[in-house]
């Protein structure tokens, strides 16, 4: 069997660079996920409310996010805004904007669905027992909403992490870009590096995403036993 070319990563600072690239990807997703969760909850509450106008606006927003490929959004924000509005935003900020724009919409929809799936009589029986809004939401509604939401939002988070591989298209040197650079630089000496290095990159994504989806599986299992 031929060499897998993994040895390339042991040369110089290659492995450190690759890990640095991974951190860039993780950083972008962490920030975007955090923003998405906070504002997604707000958006979900608005969508679940009976305000027609707010609901319509959220709906249009959600549809735009669903229809537009993330790459197009990245190009619009990074290249487009500079030309049209004359503002120069960094590639990483553009990436965070696009990923949050996407995450807030989808998270909002998940929160809306979870809120609406709690039967009205749950609110009513809690009120009939004399609960105020604080006790009603913290003890009765939110625990049920979160349980319904966890599996779907974990799925969204891992999708967001994986999709960060697109940001190299606007010049961000994240893990995949670093991998490409390492492979290019060592084309002569180890032509097989493409396989080995990308294999390691795949493993890195796995190591990041697996614990997250594992957590979701565990939570689901624990709650379904209850």
């Amino acid at each position: 069997m031929q060499s897998l070319g993994i040895d390339v990563l042991l040369k110089g600072t290659n492995m450190v660079r690759l890990l640095g690239g991974l951190w860039v990807a993780v950083r972008i997703s962490l920030i975007s996920v955090a923003i998405s969760i906070v504002f997604g909850v707000v958006m979900g509450v608005i969508m679940a409310s009976k305000n027609r106008v707010a609901e319509a606006i959220c709906h249009v927003y959600l549809e735009i996010v669903r229809i537009m490929p993330q790459m197009v959004l990245l190009f619009i924000v990074y290249f487009g805004t500079t030309r049209v509005f004359g503002i120069n935003i960094s590639a990483e900020l553009s990436a965070i904007i696009v990923f949050s724009f996407w995450g807030i919409a989808e998270m909002g929809d998940l929160v809306r669905g979870a809120l609406q799936s709690v039967p009205v009589v749950q609110y009513e029986s809690a009120r009939a027992l004399g609960m105020n809004d604080y006790v009603l939401y913290t003890q009765v509604i939110l625990p049920q909403t979160i349980r319904r939401m966890i599996p779907l939002s974990i799925n969204l988070i891992t999708r967001m992490i994986k999709t960060t591989s697109l940001v190299m298209m606007i010049g961000i040197v994240e893990v995949l870009k670093v991998a490409q650079q390492i492979i290019e630089a060592n084309r002569k000496t180890s032509p097989n590096a493409a396989f080995g290095v990308f294999l390691i990159v795949m493993l890195m994504y796995f190591i990041i995403c697996f614990p997250i989806s594992r957590l979701s599986m565990d939570l689901e299992k624990r709650w379904s036993q209850n």
């Binding site: 039967p119 009589v121 749950q122 009513e124 029986s125 809690a126 009120r127 009939a128 027992l129 004399g130 609960m131 105020n132 003890q139 009765v140 625990p143 049920q144 349980r147 709650w223 209850n226």
Partner: peptide
């Protein structure tokens, strides 16, 4: 209203127990 409701108990047709 919370105090008043505590003095008036109510049972509904169904689904009123908290499932969690």
């Amino acid at each position: 209203i919370s105090q008043m409701r505590q003095r008036i108990g109510m049972v509904f047709q169904s689904y009123d127990l908290f499932p969690h």
